[in-house]
């Protein structure tokens, strides 16, 4: 079907990048509200296992999607309660969520009467169109050769970007992440805005996880998502808290993940371990060059990120 290995690489890159797109957009929303959630990896994992379990037992893909959204949001609610209501350390709370999610997802995969681990998904998301448009050279597979969740992620990125920068609630969201006292004095309920976005962020991370277990690699293994959650956190910085940039950065790293297979066919051998470092190295470089001190704020780093806000302690 593919014209060349290059096109194949790009199509795979988009698929591999999609879970990270969902998770990164979710984390952008949370961080824009001033809440750093290092639980992305954990939320993705519980979303992945919930989605897979639904499909495995009920054979409904959309139920799997729904469940992954709910479970992701529920996991995020733990972090939201800890960091917004109790105002405890966001870093430790987020890491706790990741550790818990990692353990829980693997546990569920193996603990039940029926073991999920090692099982393929009875159903999975397939490319929406076959033949016709998808057969157009070059553009066909790139534009029309994906499953519906990829298209939904494009819609999500466009909508989120519009929401953050062009709407009144988006303005309130950014104000809450930048300067909670000013937002409060303009009549905005800081805690409510934070709760909403952390929960939505968790739901999206859950869906990102489910994309892996229901579309990318439709099966269940222990910890099937690799370092995707951590990559999403790195991408949020690389993308300077902007959804479109996160989308393209995710595809870039999706490509990097696939690149060594392709390069081997071309006779070049770059070890996959070194390629896997790329997102993290770039994120650090981006922070050093662009996002240090004052410059970070001008770039879009929410000034109140990871700082608890208490109305009484103004």
């Amino acid at each position: 079907m593919n014209e060349s290995a290059e096109i194949g690489l790009l199509v795979l890159a988009i698929a591999a990048g999609t879970p990270v797109v969902y998770a990164a957009v979710g984390e952008i929303l949370a961080e824009r509200a001033g809440v750093l959630n290092l639980g992305v990896q954990g939320m993705m994992l519980v979303g992945a296992v919930a989605g897979f379990w639904a499909v495995f037992t009920v054979e409904s893909l959309w139920l799997g999607v729904l469940l992954s959204l709910i479970v992701g949001a529920a996991a995020a609610a733990i972090h939201a309660f800890n960091s917004i209501t109790l105002r405890v350390n966001q870093i430790v709370s987020g890491l706790a969520l990741t550790i818990f999610g990692t353990g829980l997802s693997t546990f569920i995969g193996r603990a039940g009467e029926t073991q999920l681990a090692g099982e393929p998904a009875p159903k999975s998301f397939e490319p929406l169109l076959t033949g016709g448009l998808a057969d157009i050279p070059l553009i066909g597979p790139l534009v029309f050769g994906h499953d519906i969740l990829v298209y939904l992620s494009w819609l999500l990125v466009a909508a989120t970007s519009y929401y953050i920068f062009r709407t009144k609630p988006g303005l309130a969201l950014r104000a809450v992440g930048e300067d909670p006292p000013s937002a409060e004095s303009a009549g905005i309920d800081v805690a409510k805005v934070r709760y909403i976005h952390v929960l939505v962020g968790g739901a999206l991370a859950g869906l990102g996880g489910a994309y892996i277990s229901l579309a990318l690699v439709p099966s269940w293994t222990d910890e099937p998502i690799g370092q995707a959650g951590w990559i999403a956190i790195a991408l949020v910085i690389l993308a300077s808290w902007r959804p479109w940039r996160a989308l393209f950065a995710a595809y870039l790293f999706g490509a990097a993940g696939q690149l060594n297979f392709y390069l081997q066919t071309q006779g070049v051998d770059i070890p996959s371990n070194l390629l896997a470092m790329l997102p993290f190295v770039l994120a650090i470089l981006a922070m050093l060059v662009l996002a240090s001190g004052e410059r970070a704020r001008k770039l879009g780093a929410p000034a109140a990120l990871a700082i608890p806000y208490s109305r009484e302690q103004r």
Binding site: A96, I99, F100
Partner: peptide, 23 residues
């Protein structure tokens, strides 16, 4: 016949409660 990840899950849960308990 119980997954070893039970221990990891418990670790995470202890931490979540400990963090909340700090409050």
């Amino acid at each position: 016949g119980v997954p070893s990840s039970t221990a990891v899950m418990l670790q995470g849960a202890i931490l979540i409660f400990a963090v909340a308990g700090e409050f």
